[in-house]
Design a protein around this nucleic acid. Structure first.
Lengths: 138, 138
DNA sequence: CAGCAGGGTTGGACACAGTCCAACCCTGCT
DNA sequence: AGCAGGGTTGGACTGTGTCCAACCCTGCTG
């Protein structure tokens, strides 16, 4: 994703220091951060960046398709920088840890026309839930 | 689900008028209501019922496995009274309408051991997204 | 080079969903 | 009738996210 900045520049995105920092944070650790976690890490690099800017920038990255929004629990949304590799998620039902997973098969083909009710189905999200090894041991 | 009240009684659930009203609301229309919508409908039948009680009761019904929590958008949770028929959801990406669907196949078998990372996977949620006929026409 | 336009940033106020809590009430039991 | 204990209530509170008006910064124009 080091080409992320190039891609954004190519689309006429004005590349401010704030936006660069947010992109760097997402590029840094490939984990699923909440907006506030992104903000905390961004502040470490650019102390005066505001929460609103982080929210704005994350929203823009999402609508540009460079980052995915994931909301597995009913709490804060998380941001997944791995937007160019289709994948699904495995979530620990106790601690909320998230892993990217790649199931075989395509669930889209598992939804017969009679079950589509005239919808133009374009996407599927699959969320597996279970106990992670740490929580299972505890 | 008219046996719902029987099942609850059988488990020693104290059947107050408030709880009965919440159960009736869920039983009434088989749609996916938010907690506030349940509250509004409950108030129509029992004017003095409080929001806290609705939340409490919904939470209890969920942990008893009588009702499912669904959160397809990042807004309010919705409650699905259809807990005894395994199914998944089809959501309109514009208006948020939800339909229950029954895909063929079992996505659990599509997740190889190497993709389970030691998790004890127990459940899968599949959410199909697309435009509903009304939104596609507009 | 000054002025300008327009997008980006800021922080504080606000909105929404949900949770918590102490006081109160109600029911069944003794 | 008195009591214990669970259920209910409403109001305060929290966490997450959005909105907005003022400000700033950059590149362009004359």
């Amino acid at each position: 994703m080091s080409d992320l900045l190039d891609r954004l520049r190519g689309r006429g995105w004005r590349l401010t220091s704030q936006r660069r920092v947010v992109a760097e944070v997402l590029d840094g650790e490939h984990v699923h951060l909440t907006a506030d976690e992104v903000h905390a890490r961004a502040v470490a690099k650019l102390p005066e960046i505001s929460r609103a800017t982080v929210y704005n920038t994350l929203g823009e990255l999402v609508s540009l398709g460079e980052v995915l929004e994931v909301s597995t629990d009913h709490r804060a949304k998380r941001y997944d920088p791995n937007a160019h590799h289709p994948h699904h998620h495995l979530v620990c039902s106790r601690c909320g840890a998230i892993r990217d997973v790649h199931p075989t098969g395509d669930p889209l083909t598992d939804l017969p026309d009679t079950e589509r009710f005239g919808f133009a189905v374009s996407d599927v999200e699959v969320t597996y839930r279970g106990l992670c090894p740490e929580c299972a041991a505890a």
